[in-house]
Write a protein that binds this DNA or RNA. Structure first.
Lengths: 194, 194
DNA sequence: TGCCAAACGGAGACCGTCTCCATATCGTCG
DNA sequence: CGACGATATGGAGACGGTCTCCGTTTGGCA
């Protein structure tokens, strides 16, 4: 799986603090978006800023950890979608895009972070992005297997595009469901024309 | 036209400073992106921060002014495209999207600013955004007039989508021409299928 | 129990934003 | 032309966020 780095177990108090920080961060991200003050997060967690920064060197590191089970949710979702055959490809695709979008806008400002990490293996969020990419690939491959997808389109481009739409939703400040017209266009651009 | 606010002419020195700031800002935006330090811009212009902020209350105000002839360029471009009939609709549309994208990524970080202003009349950049929207509408209407565009897609959505792609280009850090696959998808999603 | 590595926290350096006001400059009018 | 009021200036400094450094505390092991 992920690269095995030799990790010595944390001391009890350190592990406790780490957990408190993660909880505080999740709350703060939810309330104020992914760009909230990290010193605030530390305050919420009842630790000093130094402690926060030792555990999570950058905002992205923190976000990556907070997004732990988010990754699992997405992966599971992708499996569900890839297995569905009760839906016409065009409907499945649209619903998948909507699901993807909703995942990506989990926190205000998360989509930009994702976008920035998407092509940059150095970015701590790269892991989450890859999971997102793989999930998308899986669904696209499944739909493509049914012959519904143009063969000159790449899952990577679709992923970028949908994340881009998420970004629009985030920046413009519209509701997720108002993004459907855009997602429809993407969907129709991806679908093979009979 | 735009709302006529009673404006008394600036004093000579004020007008000079205003101009110096605009030049400095254009340079700084080009070199360091639209999110560069405004105190730096002031320094470059050889004025104090206070002077900069009196002339341009927000970064967006400054950007809006800097974008003065950018708006004209785009408008002209749209007219050119709308008048062209040497190209098949699908090629015209793709080229237009590419032109639009290149306009929007004029400065690093400009696309986000645009996106944020797009639906917010309070935002000083709203004017530029509207110009962009109108330009796009004009071209889309022209192509639609040739019966090439689905009638369930709206120019607004297309504009958002292309600006979104610009945003992806900006954030991911790819070259503008690497956005073509995404723009093709959008184009194909917009085109009426025969 | 005592020791040391591990962990802590918070003071403070640094940077960008933006304001306030004492000072300087413009342009007009006597 | 000189002087006065309106206009404009600049930079010191308050503020808020990031991130570090280091003297102090704490946990776990012998």
């Amino acid at each position: 799986m992920t690269h095995v780095t030799e990790v010595k177990p944390l001391r009890a108090d350190a592990r406790r603090n780490r957990e408190k920080i993660l909880v505080a961060a999740r709350d703060a991200f939810t309330e104020q978006g992914a760009a909230c003050s990290l010193d605030d997060v530390a305050k919420r967690a009842g630790v000093g800023p130094g402690t926060l920064y030792r555990h999570f060197a950058t905002r992205e590191d923190l976000l990556q950890e907070v997004l732990g089970d988010w990754v699992e949710h997405i992966t599971l979702d992708a499996e569900r979608f890839a297995a569905r055959d009760d839906l016409a490809p065009e409907d499945l695709l649209l619903e998948w895009f909507e699901a993807l979008l909703r995942h990506v806008i989990i926190y205000q400002g998360a989509s930009v972070a994702m976008l920035k990490a998407m092509d940059d293996p150095e970015n701590p969020l790269y892991g989450s992005c890859r999971a997102l990419g793989l999930a998308n690939e899986q669904v696209i491959a499944s739909v493509a297997g049914r012959g519904a997808v143009r063969d000159d389109v790449d899952a990577l481009e679709i992923g970028r595009l949908v994340t881009g739409v998420a970004n629009v939703v985030d920046a413009v400040g519209i509701r997720a469901d108002e993004a459907r017209p855009m997602l429809r266009i993407v969907r129709d651009g991806v679908l093979r024309t009979r």
